[in-house]
Nucleic acid binder design. Structure first.
Lengths: 156, 156
DNA sequence: TAAAATGATTCACCTGTTGAATGATTCTGT
DNA sequence: ACAGAATCATTCAACAGGTGAATCATTTTA
């Protein structure tokens, strides 16, 4: 047994990595109960808030590449949660929209997100949670992480 | 423009996920400059602190499966950073040890970890960093994340 | 109207990972 | 001492998630 190292402010960044991985894994477990991947959840969330998005702009907001979006939407379309409609204004685009079922699932997703938040923060008092939220928000904005999800970073 | 939602303590868990992913990605960039993956770094770190480990117990501590450890050590051995020596006590085991070169690289890795920590926490004052460290440590221990790296979770 | 740009798609490919099967060695109980 | 069970390392086939290049249809630019 050693006495613990005296000046050790060293592990905070690693704790952040590990807790982030933990939070992501727990969230994935929860969405899996709805038959969704976290990516699916992100798509539904974005389409709920911005109906009519094209796959391209969806890709941008997700921080994904367009070819990645194709099978993602394929799968959601197959399950009847998202509809692809050709844009009449520009027939290269699809306008992506939630179906009624998709909207319903999005609602369930919001409940899941709430329980997720509660589970992760359960060990802290509400003051501590608030404090943590402030510190993390400061880090996120300083590191240019979009407060929302992923940010639009198209070249020009 | 909407006025911002009044009671929204909702995004903290997601911030945690995103910042964790950011921290992991930045650390990966740094280790890549040494020609190492984050997994490589974890192995070197563990072997530095526990020389003579078998692949099996290394797998346990990394939270990995033994078959995963094989190519990991293969690669480090090829690069001359780790040595496999059959245990004379139990010839099924290897005793894994850092080579002189491996020890040198581990030293470089410590420097990297320090700069990584500094970069991630740069947006915060030192009081805020300390506060964040406390909160994250509390979460980690409550969620049964080993304070160190991965924990030993063998069945029995 | 020809040429460039854009959206969606396909495809081959890569990385990291897992689980089952195998061979060598050691441990167990009788 | 020995048969059988357990353990370590290894191979292998397979999978998920993700990426970049090439392609086709459509629209924009000049």
């Amino acid at each position: 047994m050693e006495s613990t190292d005296p000046p050790r402010p060293k592990r905070t960044a690693f704790l952040l990595s590990q807790l982030g991985a933990l939070a992501s894994a727990r969230f994935a477990e929860r969405t899996r109960e709805l038959g969704l991947t976290p990516s699916d959840a992100g798509v539904l969330r974005l389409l709920g808030r911005s109906p009519g998005l094209s796959q391209r702009s969806l890709a941008d907001r997700l921080g994904a590449v367009p070819s990645r979006v194709v099978p993602l939407i394929d799968s959601l379309e197959t399950r009847g949660l998202v509809a692809r409609v050709r844009s009449s204004a520009d027939r290269r685009n699809y306008e992506l929209r939630l179906t009624a079922e998709g909207t319903k699932v999005l609602g369930a997703l919001r409940g899941i997100a709430e329980r997720h938040e509660a589970e992760i923060l359960a060990p802290l008092t509400s003051e501590q949670s608030a404090q943590l939220g402030i510190l993390l928000a400061r880090l996120a904005s300083a590191h240019a992480l979009d407060t929302d999800l992923h940010r639009d970073t198209r070249p020009a």
